[in-house]
Amino acid sequence: MNIFRILGDLSHLTSIIILLHTINTNKSTTGISLKTQILYVIVFITRYLDLFTKFISVYNTLMKIFFIISSVYIVYLIQYKYSQKHMVKQDLDNFKVEYLLAGSLLASLIFNYKFTPLEILWSFSLWLESVAILPQLMMLTRTGEADMLTTNYIFCLGLYRAFYIPNWFYRYFAEGHFDKLAVFTGLIQTLLYSDFFYIYYKNVIQARSSKLP
């Protein structure tokens, strides 16, 4: 494993730890999109079905199990423990995820390495991950103001995607490894994040600094 891949995985891990830590400290899930978190549960479960079919490494297995369990746990926290049901803000999370699911399914039926259930679900998980953050971004755009939690969380997720790009370059030249589906969907995802950071920077950071005397 190269340094970019490790840094990418660590950023991903960090983003989830930040989310869990903040929820449990504040005893609140305000500002977190339930829809995005449910999409991540679907992403991890459909992608890591290979836990049952092949063993890659202890690291790989542990990370996969962590991602599945933590994503389910976060949904549980939002839905039951620190429920947002009574909050008005919940209807800010009104992104039509049906389109994301349908689009990802369609894309996975067209683009896959083999027309088998496992391969289609794996491709589906890549497409879905590339757009899963959209409900969260929409929610943030609607409220206009992002708190530190969501900003830090999304920043770490963006960092994770950014590190995967030099990782692919490295692997292509060093190992001749090139996974065109992962690279293509990964690039879409990184573009979404960079677009978000650009808008966020323009609207929030610049607006905030211009307000200062």
Binding site: R5, N60, Y113, W122, N167, H177, D179
Partner: peptide, 10 residues
Amino acid sequence: KEERVKKDEL
């Protein structure tokens, strides 16, 4: 025999 892509990334 087709070349399988090694899926060792997360």
